[in-house]
Design a protein around this nucleic acid. Structure first.
Lengths: 370, 370
DNA sequence: GTGACGAGTGAATCCTTCA
DNA sequence: TTGAAGGATTCACTCGTCA
């Protein structure tokens, strides 16, 4: 393994540079690869974030922005031209039955997806990576941006692409793998650092690439990553016994990636390593019962002894005289207690007596779980 | 309420047809509405399910199903023309601070999103509706398509859009509402049926629209749905005390929607009131709590860890050793922080422990609400 | 060793009003 | 229009320190 230096008018290769990082612009590097030669392309292109000024956390710290030069584009048109150029080269070097994966956020994914469709790729799924631990929205101005989107597409409509259905089902407790994946973001030991600071602002978790390679490639397949960064794709490919090719323009990232992949262990030796396991999905909120109509706003709830009552409001809060808040908060405040489990404290008055609202939650879970 | 019949060369309206279903093509109907007149648009357009027969050209002609590459581009172009036409009219009739919501799947959402950005809308979030009970992938050839995507966008980058942050937080058990929403699909009693069969193939769950209207509109706001279908938007708007306008071309759907909305029951005002953000709540100065006697001058306040304390003075300022000023200023200065939210920083010492002074403000707001 | 506690951080298009 | 001042705002997780 090594880094292939960018050269003036480099000739097209005759044998694939397997296990190499091509240090060059991604379009130029792909242009030197032969037609129909790779099985999968995983691409994590710049998102074109268009961030404004600084953003501060409530406690005063400043949020580290992605302000790198490689994420700056003059206009949507410029971003589109860039996107269509690399997608076209990617499609040329993809085998007829190969597939492409691209990850993005709402800043860029719609433009990428439209370009993919326009170029004749055939979208197979869009996958949502639901982040178990996203950064909050500090100013309370929008919904927490808690996911990213991946597009999985074949080279064409008639492609006989690889999908390891059984592997995915077994990875998911014998249930079909769905289009929404809950995975933690990349941090802790896995996050590559140089001199104590993160080596790359947008490093992806290995678990994400792991699932993709496991689902859509066979052992020995060639995986190309035209935006290699710190080499996550290479490290996972090596672990899973897949061949890989990386393309990365920044020498600093190349260096980091090279060392990282050299350290990566192939599967049988790393089987016991600490791959992050998926986290459990968020639990049922009281408000969901209101939204879904199981509880109508205006309904009165009472405690088991009928000492207190409160009214359900449209946003799932309770109102009792001059106290309002969550089912837990209002229960605690009325009792003068430091805390309260609202699920067991509050009850519905029915013909057969009182029912704790927790039983509604159980009903909801039973009705909606697979 | 009633259905407005499509008429030849219908004149532009001077007053908004609130609570009406306009039976017409959506672009033609919107063209008759005045500029900057609606607060929100919710749109559930045709998904362009890869030439399945639901795609119509802007002029009404049906797109022939072909799989030639160029013709495929041609059909995408037709879908784009249709999309851009209705999005442009929608933007014209949207108020400057209004927002639009569009729902779609991977078949169409990338084209819709790109068009939204191209027309100058400003995307605020993409939201993933994660279906609690999706249809499985019967042939095991792809991931179970278990979600749909919504785009929330303001009319422009500088828009001062409505976002009821506190209501969303309340609905989600006092955690910020995230961009991934878990909700069941529409079925059971809620699914509208005519003669035992479902009246519409893609009826959306009321809970989805409920969350959208609660999050991004105020009571009395005007919500337009240009693809009204069975009138889910109208039914939820009526329930939540929002005004609505529907546009639907198919007479059968109009009829179903009309009856459905007539049956919907509005919630009374107290039930639709929600947790207020300090930003939107009537502003309460700290001094007001002192003036009204809720806080007596001389009271000592402490932070959550009891590291600092300060005394309330008659004019609503705080005094702590040699530092005095507003609750925010003193909190910031004591911590050496650039800023501080005094409402959550300062607490009252009570028999049951510490209470943030923000809860006093909540009590005051509830007691003085009209 | 072990648990409590505090500090740090992650692809973020992140304020409003009034002079 | 612009700048200054007021004031509202965070979740899950990791790691290091200290009792």
């Amino acid at each position: 393994m090594g880094v292939i230096e960018k050269t003036r008018a480099a000739p097209a290769v005759t044998t694939l540079p397997l296990g190499e990082i091509l240090r060059d612009d991604c379009v130029a590097a792909m242009a030197r690869l032969p037609d129909a030669s790779v099985d999968m392309i995983f691409a994590d292109p710049p998102y074109n974030l268009q961030l404004g000024g600084d953003l501060f956390r409530p406690e005063g710290g400043r949020v580290a922005a992605v302000d790198d030069h490689w994420d700056k584009f003059d206009s949507f048109a410029a971003y589109d031209a860039f996107t269509r150029a690399w997608l076209a080269e990617a499609r040329r070097i993809l085998k007829p039955n190969g597939t492409i994966w691209v990850i993005g956020s709402y800043h860029n994914i719609f433009r990428v997806g439209a370009a993919i469709q326009d170029q004749g790729y055939w979208i197979l799924n869009d996958i949502v990576w639901r982040k178990a631990n996203p950064m909050p929205n500090f100013r309370g101005t929008r919904f927490t941006n808690a996911h990213e989107t991946l597009i999985w597409a074949a080279k064409g409509e008639k492609s006989r692409y690889t999908f390891n259905y059984r592997a995915m089902k077994s990875l998911n407790d014998e249930l079909q793998m769905r289009s929404d994946w809950v995975l933690p973001i990349c941090g802790g030991q896995e996050r590559v650092k140089t001199g104590g600071v993160k080596a790359h602002p947008t490093q992806k978790p290995e678990a994400l690439i792991y699932r993709i390679l496991l689902a859509c490639t066979k052992r020995g397949d060639v995986v190309l990553d035209p935006f290699f960064g710190t080499g996550t794709t290479g490290a996972v490919a090596k672990r899973l016994g897949r061949q890989w090719i990386g393309i990365e323009r920044e020498p600093a990232y190349c260096k980091v990636a090279e060392r990282r992949i050299a350290d990566a262990l192939p599967l049988d030796e790393s089987a016991t390593s600490t791959m992050q396991s998926p986290r459990t999905a968020p639990k049922v909120a009281f408000g969901t019962l209101v939204e879904t109509g199981m509880l109508v706003p205006g309904t009165r709830l009472v405690d088991a002894k009928r000492r207190w009552s409160a009214e359900v409001r449209a946003d799932g809060s309770l109102l009792s005289d001059d106290v309002s808040g969550s089912i837990h908060q209002v229960g605690a405040k009325l009792q003068g207690a430091p805390s309260c489990n609202g699920w067991t404290f509050w009850h519905l008055e029915g013909s057969a007596g009182l029912t704790p609202i927790d039983s509604l939650r159980q009903t909801y879970i039973l009705a909606t779980e697979p």
